[in-house]
Design a protein around this nucleic acid. Structure first.
Length: 842
DNA sequence: TTCGTGGGTATTTTT
DNA sequence: TACCCACGAA
């Protein structure tokens, strides 16, 4: 595949790269510059070219889905270097995900003839980490600070709440940690919190206590990485000046996803008016993370504050056919406050967007899999087929359908590698080797495997630690009796682990730890520990890969000298004015005073926190891709199914209450649609099992917001809403028998009904949703619920004010007769039949 | 200390 | 429905 950065051709030594001279090196391309230039810019469309070759000015790039955004970003970096406008040390490029930054590095190393590792390209958090490792002393952090991931943070907060003797009902650890992260992302420290009520006052107290605890334990959470870096730059003029001088060009990916703090952080590196080339790339229509603090408004703020002269719009789409883009454009045009953008394609209209209505969620799943199989038979790789849904709970039916049919599939989301319990246990031991005062890690493994250290003992220990203000590890001696001696034994274990691992390679350290801690033995004897053992083996492999990649040992990673000089304390005078600075070959950041190099173990632990790794699904196998719409962002597939297009689900009911909620849902739908290259399927179901209850749903309003001309209904429109068959089918499904029993009983034939064959042509894939013999359908319909003046439970009705709905319940008789109707976007309502005009729809 | 049970609760999530 | 968590019993 793509060359690894280390394999990239070109200069090996750092001197070759930057030389000793303070002046910027001339272009590496030498005499061949013209040719290289042509190659670089070849094939860019005019807008892309304009974006890539912008000068040193603030720029806002509105990059539509599939418009070649990553290419523009990487080409611009290469172009800047190639032109001699910037040096590798003078460029910073920020992304949100590790995946995106890796992609950028990979592409760059293919475009550039040298090692791009020393460049400041990474995620917001990754770069903050790098920055704080270099300036740990100025930032007031211990040199080997560790990073808490989301679940570590919650358990740390939980400990604080317990220690403060607060009611966990009132202060739910998860919510409190969310509050703290939210505050940090708004740049607020405990003292800055607006104490508007008692609850908030308490929350601020918890926040303070949590901060103290983190400090004591030498750990930082994700939000802290950002905030600490921001504050350090804000409060240290010399340092700020240095970095502003150093980074002449900044590039930010997915700018619409930045939160308040990230934007403020960026402004520290490149404030408006400082003249740096800030290149912000984003798409307001793809902003789907407002719920976790992203501010689309940062885009227009940026445009205003930086006085952006020209907004470059990348509207040429290279991904999808016309009908798909028409659907996307039409849908998103319903949103207000857009920056304005319309995707276009040269690829022709392609196939229409297919819409399917299913009787039940089970039916929908069955249809999905048969349609997907048909696509596969037509030659489409399974990995090119994605099934998207709004919420994770929806995957279950689909999974079981695929599983029963023996079709390989891969579900995104769920536990990732470094989040698995056994891996976290192993990491906790490793962290204790590095820093025994890490109470989170201590508590995680002090009694795992079991060592007779129970809740009571730990309570005593925590009391002692709290009183002396020391870590649990340091307080062990204060616990008397048997518990105390067991604790002492644990401390001895950790000590011996530390001694035994002195001077070993990372791989050996981990192997030693697995043996000494008893983890390996524990899982070996555990009856279902086999898979966990495998994961621990995998951890060893991951460490090995990390060592190779990061270039510990012979292959030193280069860091500019300012990061060296700055380590442990920043002296402005130390740094030459010229950029790039001289380079020293080191691994990570050594301490300026002692020259000690951060251990591979410490680096690996940081890596483990910052990058949770892949989730379980085995790569390699050709499998259908299942994921939420959120996790599909940034991906593309030949065929995409968007499922569960029902009011209440998509748009989700919880989103409708807050102001911008519906628009964000619509953007989500927009993201979903624009994932598809060739074929797009939309589906919804009349009934769905949710939280143990059958829900009768109305189709999503988003279906009505798509252009008729681009749609092709696979099922008759609006037919059979809550049809009798759906109910009977649902009952069979509830009995746990489902399709099989109905087929077995000879009641369902597995073939496409006549109307289906007519619409799709005889070569069309067979209809998956358990086609119904006519007699069966009639029989089922006859059985359905109560009847009242032509109204039937489970049938669609029309109301003058609320429009179309599904009749859920009929109660009472005569003047008391009441009906419960689900009107979708208008909610579920009780109506007095004597008053309300309800007409059955057929 | 472990196991069983009952209650509460159910978008979306990277780092 | 299904999972997680807290709590109580053995």
């Amino acid at each position: 595949m793509t060359a690894h950065p280390h394999d990239a051709p070109g200069p090996d030594s750092l001197d070759d790269l930057f030389g000793d001279a303070p002046a910027p090196r001339p272009s590496f391309a030498g005499s061949g510059r013209g040719e290289a230039q042509n190659g670089l810019l070849k094939g860019l469309n005019p807008e892309q070219l304009a974006a890539v070759t912008l000068g040193q000015e603030p720029a806002l790039i509105l990059a539509g889905a599939g418009s070649g955004k990553t290419r523009v970003l990487t080409t611009r970096i290469a172009w800047l270097l190639n032109q001699g406008l910037a040096t590798p040390g003078g460029i910073m490029a920020v992304t949100f995900t590790n995946k995106a930054s890796k992609e950028m590095l990979t592409r760059l190393s293919a475009m550039l003839p040298y090692n791009v590792r020393g460049m400041w390209i990474g995620t917001f958090h990754g770069l903050c980490n790098r920055f704080l490792r270099a300036h740990w002393k100025l930032a007031g952090l211990p040199q080997g600070f560790q990073i808490l991931d989301a679940s570590d943070t919650v358990s740390a907060v939980k400990r604080v709440i317990k220690a403060m003797n607060l009611d966990e009902e009132r202060f739910v650890p998860k919510q409190v940690s969310w509050f703290i992260a939210g505050a940090k992302e708004d740049g607020l420290r405990p003292k800055d919190i607006d104490l508007r009520d008692e609850q908030t006052r308490k929350l601020a107290d918890i926040y303070q206590a949590y901060e103290d605890q983190c400090k004591r334990e030498g750990v930082v959470d994700f939000a802290e990485l950002m905030l600490r870096a921001y504050e350090l730059l804000r409060d240290n003029a010399a340092l700020r000046e240095h970095y502003q001088h150093r980074f002449q060009y900044l590039l930010v990916d997915e700018f619409q996803d930045t939160n308040k703090l990230q934007y403020a952080w960026l402004k520290m590196f490149a404030p408006p008016g400082r003249g740096q080339g800030v290149f912000a790339v984003g798409d307001d229509d793809q902003s789907i993370y407002a719920f976790r603090g992203a501010r689309v408004g940062n885009m227009s703020d940026f445009e205003r504050e930086y006085r952006v002269h020209r907004v470059v719009k990348l509207e040429q789409n290279y991904r999808s056919y016309g009908h798909i883009l028409d659907a996307a454009n039409e849908l998103i045009s319903r949103n207000s406050h857009r920056l304005g953008k319309n995707l276009r394609t040269d690829m022709g209209p392609g196939e229409p967007v297919r819409v399917n209505e299913a009787a039940s969620d089970f039916n929908e799943a069955q249809w999905l899999l048969e349609e997907a199989q048909a696509l596969h038979r037509q030659g489409l790789a399974r990995s090119e087929i994605a099934i998207l849904y709004r919420s994770n709970a929806q995957s279950r039916v689909i999974e079981s359908a695929l599983f029963n049919a023996g079709i390989p599939y891969r579900v995104y989301g769920g536990l990732r590698f470094f989040e698995r319990a056994e891996v976290k246990h192993a990491l906790a031991y490793l962290r204790l080797i590095e820093n025994a005062n890490d109470d989170t890690s201590f508590l995680r493994v002090v009694n795992f495997p079991a060592r007779g250290i129970g809740a009571r003992t730990l309570e005593l220990l925590q009391d002692a630690a709290r009183q002396s203000g020391r870590s649990l590890y340091q307080s062990v001696a204060a616990v008397p009796g048997k518990g105390g001696s067991n604790l002492a034994a644990f401390v001895n274990l950790v000590e011996s682990m530390r001694n035994l691992t002195q001077g070993l390679t990372l791989r050996e350290i981990i192997e030693q730890m697995l043996a000494t801690s008893g983890l390996a033995d524990f899982y070996r004897t555990d009856k279902d520990g086999a898979e966990r053992l495998e994961n621990l083996d995998e951890l060893v492999n991951a460490a090995e890969a990390f060592v190779t990649q990061e270039g510990f040992g012979k292959d030193a990673v280069a860091l500019p000298v300012d990061e060296l000089g700055a380590a442990g304390g920043f002296t402005p005078g130390q740094i030459a004015a010229g950029d790039p600075p001289a380079i020293a070959a080191v691994t990570l950041t050594p301490d300026a005073e002692t020259g000690e190099i951060v251990s591979p173990l410490a680096a690996f632990l940081t890596h483990a926190s910052l990058e949770a790794g892949d989730n379980q699904a085995q790569a390699g196998q050709d499998a259908i891709q299942l994921m939420t719409v959120h996790s599909a962002k940034g991906l593309e597939f030949d065929a995409v199914f968007i499922t569960g297009l029902e009011e209440g689900l998509f748009p989700h009911e919880n989103s409708l209450s807050d102001g911008d909620g519906l628009e964000e849902e619509r953007r989500l739908m927009y993201v979903a649609i624009t994932r598809a290259r060739q074929r797009l399927y939309l589906s919804f179901s009349q009934t769905r099992m949710l939280h143990g209850q059958t829900r009768y749903n109305v189709k999503s309003r988003f279906l009505d917001e798509l252009p008729e001309a681009s749609l092709k209904w696979l099922t008759p429109r609006n037919q059979g809403f809550g049809s009798g068959f759906a109910r009977e089918y649902q009952q069979a499904w509830e009995r746990g028998s489902g399709l099989k029993s109905m087929v077995g009983a000879g009641r369902v034939e597995r073939q496409a009904p006549a109307w289906q064959q007519e619409r799709e042509g005889k070569d069309a894939p067979s209809f998956g949703g358990a086609p119904v013999p006519k007699t069966m359908k009639q029989a089922a319909a006859a059985k359905v619920g109560d009847e009242h003046g032509g109204l039937r439970v489970g049938k669609p009705v029309f109301h003058n004010k609320f429009g179309e709905g599904v009749l859920l319940t009929l109660e009472g008789s005569g003047p008391d007769a009441r009906a419960q109707v689900n009107f979708g976007r208008h909610g579920t309502k009780w109506l007095a039949l004597a008053v309300a005009k309800l007409t059955p729809i057929d």
